[in-house]
Design a protein around this nucleic acid. Structure first.
Lengths: 213, 213
DNA sequence: TGTACATCAGTGAACGCGCGTTCACTGATGTAC
DNA sequence: TGTACATCAGTGAACGCGCGTTCACTGATGTAC
């Protein structure tokens, strides 16, 4: 430990935006080690503040973790939106709708592999199930990851690719497939899989979903 | 705390089979609270033994957890085998093979829902990826859960339902789908789902896999 | 423009907690003669 | 069948750790007059 590794050395007594700083530090911790790594004392250390100062902004560690989780979900939504945005405009609306759903899936998988800590944090179970409708967990479009998937499925129906009758609950099926692969590769028995192999399985998985829906 | 809640009060100095007792206690802890609940001191408490006694049988908490994980995987394999065994013998071999795969899937899901703590423990990441080929994680057939799935897929090929060309890697696809649903329902945003609803989504998911493979 | 005061963000010190792990030990067991 | 001894499973006491959280405080800020 050297002086250089010490916190940023505030010059004012007040921090400025400690709440933001704690969430940012928490996100950094989550990025490195998942939800368990979001340690209140460490977050305050990184913000250059005494541990109990956190209690001005969060009533408990759990509440801080909740804010970090929302931020992680938001990052996931943004990653999916980015994948969507990178889509060249196809001619056939059916092809476009299909490409849309694929982008949702690959965006999801890409994020999971690129940011395993954040991904695991996003899906860590909160103690209390409450609190939906959190404006912090969405992307630029204002939709959260689940809603982005739903929108892609709606477009599939609109383009006549997916029969209306099969629309209800279809997000659960598609989501399960992609989420499962992510989990098996990150935390499960498929951990050793090479990135290229994972990507190719991801492709086949999207095929399966498209055909099977 | 009453005397009645005290440990079983050994009468011999030697325990008899402390290793076994510690694993059993660990499984009980995992059943209740997942991998994090497998606390070495608590396991020894339940076995009626002083904490450091555990070190005669496990070199660290991590090693105990590994043994508990194997036991959880074995329980999962047994649950899948049970589901297979309950299958009436169909006439058409193709139907039989299909029913086989379905049983694998529903056995998996059923176990996940009935024993969430053990399920989560079974898929908790071990520190060191090593140690496959563990004879403790299998079912009565000698196959672990992944191998059971592979066998079901092989039968599907043998019955002419699944084209040979699509066989390779098919376990990853099927497994992902079912595993994903389990995770979303246990730990994820689908936590609130009613059991009946979950079961029906599970059915549709199996349909999707069957069609999409 | 200047002063008095309420507000409240951050400080300093301390708490109790249960954990995993290490040490030197003791006492029951089973084997060799 | 009896005794001596090596083995090693379990004991007892202690360690350092970092954690979340509580308490009474201090000092900067911004608003009212």
């Amino acid at each position: 430990m050297r002086a250089s590794s010490a916190p940023p050395a505030r010059r004012t007594y007040r921090h400025g935006d400690l709440r933001r700083a704690l969430i940012d530090a928490g996100v950094e911790l989550a990025r490195g080690g998942g939800p368990d790594a979001v340690v209140l004392r460490e977050a305050t250390r990184r913000a250059g503040v005494v541990p109990n100062a956190a209690y001005r902004h969060f009533s408990s560690r759990q509440e801080l973790l909740g804010a970090v989780r929302s931020a992680a979900l938001s990052a996931l939504a943004v990653a999916m939106e980015t994948e969507l945005a990178g889509l060249g405009s196809a001619e056939d609306p059916a092809d476009l709708a299909r490409a849309n759903l694929r982008a949702i899936g690959t965006g999801y998988l890409r994020f999971a592999l690129a940011e395993p800590g954040l991904f695991r944090t996003a899906f860590a179970v909160p103690r209390e199930p409450g609190g939906s409708a959190d404006p912090d967990k969405v992307g630029k479009s204002g939709l959260d990851p689940f809603e982005l998937l739903g929108a892609a499925l709606d477009r599939l129906v609109a383009a006549g690719v997916l029969p209306e009758a099969r629309r209800a609950g279809a997000e659960y099926l598609a989501w399960s497939a992609v989420h499962g692969l992510a989990m098996l590769v990150l935390d499960g028995p498929l951990r050793g899989l090479a990135p290229a192999e994972t990507a190719s399985i991801g492709e086949r998985l999207c095929d399966m979903v498209e055909k099977g829906l």
